[in-house]
């Protein structure tokens, strides 16, 4: 009984962290068709922003939920203006340029923070269920992931800004004819995507020891979650994160964490082979 509760929490946590890791990329790739391979480094910088802010004496929740997204969002803004802007519509070139950016940021972080592990302790204490100890912070991550999905859904579906953004991504010429500047809307969307990456990196920072190359651990997972999700932004994110999270945890508990990771990757390859358009390319068509 206790064990099944623990496994359930772990599964929810795995799904939630996948949603967090992928949400920024889902906005940038799912909406803008920009494959941002520097996504992991955006998360890494969110983590460093949090740790720096906490070390300066700022409340950890303020640092995670406000400062880190802002800092990374602004970095994303600079990246969009300097690099990405010139490459819209050139899928492979954006991939390569953002890969270059990812190496650039790794180098930058190494020069500023050094090639050592830094970290902060989790702000929420753990508690026991029967004979098992559960990390209380896992619940925080689950809550943040749920809030994030709901907020994205509401903003995209029920606000004018969301409508304009969606319209521009579908037909930028039409949006321009109606008096909206696609250039600025792309800029704003990229800012939001980067801020989401920063938020994810910040929220996950207390769980991992941060090194400049931490981003590499996220990028592949984010990439496959978003691509396996397919064209629908939120339904895709939710379904593929759910699928991969459960596969990962089942094999982790059954065999070992390494096999869990490998099973996730193999599941991704098989899924892409069977559904090359992603999960929402076949199911939940037309949903957001």
């Amino acid at each position: 009984m206790d064990l099944s509760v623990v496994i359930l929490v772990e599964m929810l946590y795995a799904v939630a962290s996948l949603i967090l890791i992928s949400s920024g990329l889902a906005v940038v790739f799912g909406m803008m068709k920009v494959i941002n391979l520097a996504h992991g480094e955006f998360m890494m910088m969110g983590g460093y922003a949090t740790i720096t802010a906490v070390n300066l004496g700022i409340n950890i929740f303020l640092a995670m939920l406000v400062i880190a997204p802002l800092v990374v969002g602004l970095i994303g803004l600079a990246v969009e203006r300097l690099v990405i802007r010139h490459l819209y519509g050139r899928l492979v070139d954006t991939m390569l340029a953002t890969w270059g950016l990812s190496l650039f940021f790794i180098g930058l972080a190494t020069m500023i923070f050094g090639n050592t592990t830094t970290g902060i302790s989790t702000p929420i204490p753990g508690f026991a269920i029967g004979n098992y100890q559960i990390n209380g912070y896992n619940f925080f991550i689950i809550v943040v992931a749920i809030l994030l999905l709901v907020a994205m859904l509401v903003i995209l579906k029920n606000t004018r800004a969301g409508l304009i953004a969606r319209g521009t991504m579908q037909r930028s010429d039409m949006a321009a004819a109606l008096g909206y500047s696609p250039d600025r809307i792309y800029m704003a969307t990229f800012f939001c995507g980067s801020a989401l990456s920063g938020l994810a990196g910040a929220v996950l920072a207390p769980l991992v020891g941060l090194v400049p190359t931490s981003g590499g651990a996220y990028i592949a997972k984010a990439f496959i979650t978003v691509i396996a999700g397919g064209p629908s932004l939120i339904a895709g994110l939710f379904s593929s994160a759910g699928f991969f999270g459960i596969v990962n945890q089942v094999f982790t508990f059954a065999i070992s964490p390494v096999i869990g990771e490998v099973a996730l990757l193999i599941a991704a390859v098989v899924l892409l082979r069977l559904l090359p358009q992603g999960i929402t390319g076949k199911f939940f068509k037309g949903k957001l």
């Binding site: 340029a97 270059g100 180098g107 020069m111």
Partner: peptide, 17 residues
Amino acid sequence: AVDNTLITGLILVLFVL
């Protein structure tokens, strides 16, 4: 003085652009 990875990344970005 300058990190290796940083330069590799910069080269890639500049070449693509």
